[in-house]
Simulated assay, not measured.
Amino acid sequence: MKKTGMAKSDAKKLMGKMVAPGAAGFGKEDVAVLDRREQRKLDQALGLVPFAVKLNSDLVLQLQTLAKERGVDLNEVVAEVLAKGLAA
């Protein structure tokens, strides 16, 4: 790898750390962020199962805007839409 490629890679890593959840900056509250293992245990206790699908980008955009409008998590909106669709 060239020196410039390594510099780009290092910069991307640094930017990712700055934007990462839980990376509290000056004056921000220190919020406890769960690691993946803890989050997985909480999800399992709630009966949640990871379910990956590939969707059209327009459909995903509609789901995201619906979640923003309602002020809820995207997972809740998708679960509600699926439940309504299966009931019909």
Rank of each mutant, 00 (worst) to 15 (best):
M1G: 15
K2M: 11
K2R: 11
K2H: 07
K3C: 05
K3D: 10
T4V: 06
T4W: 02
G5K: 09
M6S: 05
S9A: 15
K12C: 03
K13W: 09
L14D: 05
G16D: 10
G16N: 13
M18R: 15
M18H: 10
V19I: 09
A20E: 09
P21M: 12
G22V: 10
A24C: 12
A24I: 08
F26Q: 14
G27L: 10
E29K: 13
V31Y: 03
V31N: 08
V33W: 11
L34P: 00
R36M: 14
E38Y: 01
E38Q: 12
Q39F: 05
R40L: 13
L42E: 06
D43Y: 05
L46V: 04
G47L: 14
L48W: 13
V49E: 13
P50G: 06
F51V: 07
A52F: 11
A52R: 15
K54W: 10
K54E: 14
N56Q: 09
L61N: 05
Q62T: 01
Q62V: 03
Q62E: 03
L63C: 06
Q64Y: 01
K68C: 01
G71S: 03
L74R: 02
L74N: 00
N75S: 14
N75H: 06
E76M: 08
V77L: 07
V77I: 14
V77S: 02
V78A: 14
V78M: 08
V78G: 00
A79P: 01
V81A: 02
V81E: 06
A83F: 02
K84C: 00
K84N: 05
